[in-house]
Computed example of a mutant assay.
Amino acid sequence: MTGSGPAAVHPVGEHALLVELADPAEVTALYGWLRERQAAGELPAVEEIVPAAGTVLLDGVADVAALTRELRAARPDPAAAVRGPLVEVPTVYDGADLPEVARLWGVSPEAAVRIHTEPEYVVAFCGFAPGFGYLTGLPARYEVPRRATPRSSVPAGSVALAGPYTGVYPHPSPGGWQLLGRTGLPLWDATRTPPALLAPGTRVRFTPARETTA
């Protein structure tokens, strides 16, 4: 491993630790490394690992001191390939904000679709609503601002952009992200394990579709 290591490791109560990192790429790298160590039985016992934009929370830690030593010695490589499962998201690119996103990028709407479907994305963390994943992978030059006025209702399955992230709305909800298109994939199912289709660490490819796939 060649990363710079955690910026700080903080105890949270008696059985949890919070790791602060410099950017989402380091969060993704540490999360992947922890899950691999956990699967191999090489990590001190921990019940839950929860990534966020700049932190990783480890809860239900059996030996806080041992895990703190592990985390302070960890050097995950942010450039290492993510080994999570790959989910293909068929998307109808007819979103209300596609022309505006294309204008911001200085390209045609057709070219904007090609730009958005080219990368392989990674779910960095979940938040905002159950099953809403924050996906990284779009180059920084394509970051776009949120809408000045959020919509009061965004349909479930809407594929959208805000800042450095792509997201897919799992439920109808208010939202201020730029809408590119829509998918029929069920993003959240309480009977599934895990319930979120786009759980942290999942790799994602968006593919153009004429009709959404239920």
Rank of each mutant, 00 (worst) to 15 (best):
T166Q: 03
A199N: 07
P11K: 01
E20H: 11
P90M: 00
R146P: 08
F125C: 09
V50A: 10
L180Y: 08
A112D: 00
E100G: 00
A62F: 05
R210M: 00
P109S: 05
T207Y: 01
L135W: 09
R75F: 13
D94C: 12
S152R: 15
G167W: 09
E211G: 00
R69A: 15
E120H: 01
R114G: 06
A199M: 13
Y165P: 03
T212A: 07
G127R: 02
G201Q: 02
L197K: 12
L197F: 11
S152A: 14
G184V: 06
G184T: 03
M1A: 14
H15R: 05
Y142F: 15
F206D: 02
D77A: 13
R146S: 10
V87A: 00
V61D: 05
A8S: 04
H10N: 01
P51G: 13
V123L: 03
A79G: 13
R205D: 06
V122W: 01
A22I: 04
P139F: 08
A124Q: 02
R203F: 10
P195L: 12
G127A: 06
E118G: 00
G106E: 04
E110T: 01
L187C: 10
V144F: 08
L71R: 10
A62W: 03
R210V: 11
L21P: 07
G127I: 06
A156F: 04
A25T: 07
A140I: 03
E211R: 13
T117V: 12
P78K: 13
P76A: 12
L198F: 12
A29R: 08
G54Y: 08
R35C: 15
L185Y: 05
A29I: 11
L86Q: 00
A25R: 10
V107G: 05
P200N: 13
T193Q: 14
P51H: 07
R69N: 06
R72T: 13
A74D: 05
P200A: 14
A66N: 06
V82I: 15
P44T: 12
